[in-house]
Nucleic acid binder design. Structure first.
Lengths: 118, 118
DNA sequence: ACAATATTAAACCAAATGGTTGACAGTTGC
DNA sequence: GCAACTGTCAACCATTTGGTTTAATATTGT
């Protein structure tokens, strides 16, 4: 089972793979919202929406601040940056730019060695 | 169930969420490999590895070229670019740069209207 | 004290995921 | 022709996912 490298990326990409969760993130760009506000536009029960928020929390993409009986959620950017970094290391691939490929491969290898990631 | 927007991003992010599949992509940077070569370093059965490759194919991240009895796989960049674009629209968020936030939100909204994506 | 509000918890369910093994099929080389 | 190689398919299994509903908990306003 590939010795589970980089559980962070696993959780982050998994969190981003569901449209409801991406919708939640979009709702949180720039403003805090509580669970009721977040769940309102999603066509699903409140508990279902609440579970999606928790998936985002496990991925550290959302942080929760409890104020009385309401749970205010805000987006947390750093893990998105991590996902972006991972994608970035494939930029040459999608840009069809293979001139620097040897260096790219070495880069990836040393990154891998350094942080033990996949 | 949020009327399933953007099945592309769903498949792409889901594909990237498993370390074995990221390992496969990394193996494919710059070189083609057949399924046997791809599955060798993964600690799982051959059929399991084969299934992972198919997940990557459904996400259009990998293309297969059958040559005799061997299936040569190559990485396909465009979907990665799509994922990158999506992440990019959150760049201000992870850079903590909220000055331009109103424009960002309008941008996101018009993108959403234009392509009906989440 | 009580009703309304905001949220979690628990029980349940169907479907998808990630893995296995064993049998089958096409291709290659001798 | 036949053995070896490459890969799929089918059946099966355990776990996770994504959803529901009902009940419980905590906080607020009157």
């Amino acid at each position: 089972m590939v010795t589970d490298r980089s559980p962070n990326l696993n959780r982050i990409f998994h969190a981003l793979a569901h449209p409801a969760r991406r919708a939640i993130l979009r709702q949180l760009t720039g403003r805090e919202q509580n669970l009721s506000e977040l769940s309102a536009p999603l066509r699903m029960s409140f508990p279902a929406a609440s579970k999606h928020v928790r998936v985002l929390e496990r991925a550290r993409l959302v942080r929760r601040r409890i104020v009385g009986r309401t749970h205010m959620c805000r987006i947390e950017g750093k893990p998105l940056a991590e996902a972006n970094d991972w994608l970035e290391s494939y930029r040459q691939v999608w840009e069809g730019n293979f001139q620097r490929l040897d260096e790219l491969l070495n880069e990836l290898k040393s990154q891998e060695a350094k942080r033990g990631n996949t």
